[in-house]
């Protein structure tokens, strides 16, 4: 497959393949959720199944100007019931994607993480990867972890790499280049991150992490700019052409992507990682376009 280089290319790619995914929406009781679901349905990407209180969902649909006539609507008397049923639907294969509506993120993720009834893969690490589209970069940048793990340790970083690489593969990027981001390219025993990065990049060389090229520590310039690499005289197998950026902390990655969204015209789509099926958690402050991209991304990842 030809690599997908823009978020706007995901939906056309899926439509051409005739992909149509069932999305179980837990507590589809707010306008934001309804809008996102409505647009993805209108574009022919998804068939929504809405779980929640019927009166609240109808009102939200009216406010969002979404016609729910063709949607499956499952009346649930409480938040807990809606959440439980939506997760169960995905778990049992009646739906392909789980999406969060008007329910607290903590409650929602707890249901996803639940040992028997949740959606985590065995021994998986819940984390987050988003795909960023930037006018100033020639391709998509996958970034992890921008939402879940505050200070990932070595094994969590390793999981973040694995999941992000899997996502990049879905975009048709055969051997994604994974940059482990630090403040410099030096390895120092005084910086635990640089030690973790040295280990991870050597694990890649020894064939313990596959399907990608891993290098780090690298600063952002050396990761994404061949000229900086040349000026600094650093030799990196990534050649300043990273597809995936792994960050050492949530603060760093969060500030990175939000800075790009706010000041550099970035668009993004992100997903919870480590789950058996795609799990969509959108923030209300995201643009309508980002929400749509997020649904498209979930469909792409759900497609095996």
């Amino acid at each position: 497959m030809r690599p997908i280089r823009k978020l706007s290319e995901i939906a056309p790619f899926l439509k051409e393949k005739g992909v149509l995914k069932k999305v179980a929406v837990a507590c589809a009781e707010d306008m934001n959720t309804m809008e996102a679901v409505g647009q993805a349905a209108k574009e022919g990407l998804i068939e929504p199944v809405l779980y929640g209180r019927a009166d609240l969902m109808e009102q939200a649909a009216r406010e969002a100007g979404v016609a729910t006539g063709s949607f499956d609507v499952i009346e649930c008397s409480s938040e807990g019931e809606a959440l439980g049923q939506a997760v169960a639907a995905v778990k049992k294969g009646r739906a392909d994607i789980l999406m969060k509506g008007l329910v607290g993120t903590d409650k929602f993720l707890k249901a996803v993480l639940h040992k028997e009834n949740g959606l985590m893969r065995p021994n998986a690490v819940m984390s987050y990867t988003c795909a960023l589209e930037l006018p100033a970069y020639h391709k998509l940048l996958f970034v992890s972890d921008t939402a879940v793990l505050p200070f990932p340790d070595l094994s969590q970083k390793s999981a973040m790499i694995t999941y992000s690489v899997e996502m990049a593969h879905k975009f048709g990027i055969e051997t994604p280049r994974v940059a482990l981001i630090g403040a410099s390219e030096k390895v120092s025993p005084h910086f635990q991150n640089s030690i973790d990065y040295a280990l991870l990049s050597r694990m890649n060389v020894r064939g313990q992490i596959t399907g990608c090229l891993v290098d780090g520590p690298l600063d952002l310039f050396c990761a994404c700019d061949p000229e900086s690499l040349a000026i600094k005289g650093v030799s990196s197998p990534l050649e300043g052409d990273a597809d995936i950026l792994i960050f050492p902390s949530l603060e760093a990655s969060n500030a990175f992507y939000k800075g790009l969204m706010r000041f550099a015209g970035g668009e993004l789509a992100g997903l919870i990682q480590g789950t058996e099926k795609p799990v969509v958690v959108m923030s209300r402050s995201e643009t309508a376009l980002s929400k749509f991209y997020c649904m498209a991304l979930a469909c792409l990842v759900a497609e095996s």
Partner: peptide, 25 residues
């Protein structure tokens, strides 16, 4: 062994030193 693992100090340190050499340190 040649496996990179944080669980065995000899293996972990060796991988880190290799990376240092790659970086010209």
């Amino acid at each position: 062994s040649e496996t990179v693992t944080p669980k065995i100090p000899a293996n972990a340190d060796a991988a880190v030193i290799t990376k240092m050499a790659e970086r010209g340190q």
